[in-house]
């Protein structure tokens, strides 16, 4: 069974919701990422979503845009991201990892070369923001051949017909984008989200994660009542930004890890309460 599948199976058995933090790899410097990943697991993360920095993050708000820019100062590449994951797997063989990013770095590497390398590094799922299933007829089989789950987004504008199409190709879980907008948008309407998720559940048995607009323990709990997973991104990346210019990287990294862990611990306990 894939790591993502067994993760959700176990959560279901324990009647728990998945807490899925997003951070950009290499943000604010390459040294932090491995330690941060382990710390997030310690703090209660069930799945890690690791952002692959891209020069033109069209679907991201200012917070995650700047994360990409910080990571790219050090030239953090897709290859670098995979090698951090490989290191992570040396001591953690159970926490699923989902890559989140844009198509061009994968396109340049080649779908099959990428899929093989990602799988060998210990990646479990790949969420590429700018490839809809209609364009993914080479991409999806390449991922599946290497037992990677193609994760797709559903949004408030997705019709039921498209939901069926997308869920047909998706595996692992479905990621519902809770707002019309980019990452980091504030106004998440939990009632609207709940009714959308009802619709999605009619077309798929896959677990459903909800992201975009989850700011704190309260929104996490509200969303957790209707979804299987809550994804929290900009709220964490904000903490990176606030500490990115600390006197030394080592000092800043320590503070970032501590603050992100605190937020995750509070979300974890709120979700489990």
């Amino acid at each position: 069974m894939s790591r993502i599948k067994s993760c959700f199976a176990q959560l279901k058995e324990n009647k728990r919701k998945a807490l899925v933090p997003y951070v950009a790899a290499g943000d604010p410097n390459p040294e932090i990422t491995l330690d941060l990943m382990h710390a997030m697991v310690q703090a209660g993360a069930d799945i890690i979503e690791l952002g692959v920095p891209f020069s033109d993050p069209m679907a991201d708000g200012p917070v995650i845009q700047k994360a990409s820019e910080r990571a790219l100062i050090y030239g953090t590449s897709l290859t670098d991201v995979l090698s951090v994951i490989k290191q992570f797997r040396e001591t953690n063989d159970s926490t699923p990892i989902v890559l989140m990013g844009y198509l061009n770095p994968i396109e340049v590497m080649g779908y099959e070369v990428f899929a093989k390398a990602a799988s060998e590094s210990g990646v479990d799922g790949v969420l590429t923001v700018d490839i809809p299933p209609e364009e993914a007829q080479v991409y999806i089989p390449a991922l599946k051949q290497y037992e990677l789950d193609p994760i797709f987004l559903l949004s408030p504008t997705t019709t039921k017909e498209r939901m069926k199409l997308i869920c047909h190709y998706a595996s692992g879980f479905i990621y519902y984008v809770a707002v019309k907008g980019v990452t980091g948008t504030s106004a998440l309407d939990t009632i609207e989200v709940a009714s959308r998720l009802e619709m999605i559940k009619e077309v798929t048995d896959l677990p459903i994660g909800v992201g975009f607009g989850i700011k704190n323990a309260a929104t996490a709990v509200a969303v957790g009542q209707v979804s299987d997973a809550v994804v929290v991104g900009s709220a964490l990346v904000n903490l990176v930004e606030q500490n990115a210019h600390a006197l030394s990287n080592a000092e800043g990294n320590k503070k970032i890890i501590k603050e992100i862990s605190q937020v995750l611990v509070s979300m974890r306990s709120a979700l489990d309460a």
Binding site: F54, S55, M58, S77, N104, P105, E107, M109, D130
Partner: peptide, 22 residues
């Protein structure tokens, strides 16, 4: 340049070997 994907379409782009737009 080389073919890649940016701004919603596949086309020739100016990019580095990691697929970042230059």
């Amino acid at each position: 340049g080389k073919p890649g994907v940016l701004h919603g379409n596949r086309t020739y782009l100016m990019e580095d070997r990691h697929g970042q737009i230059i």
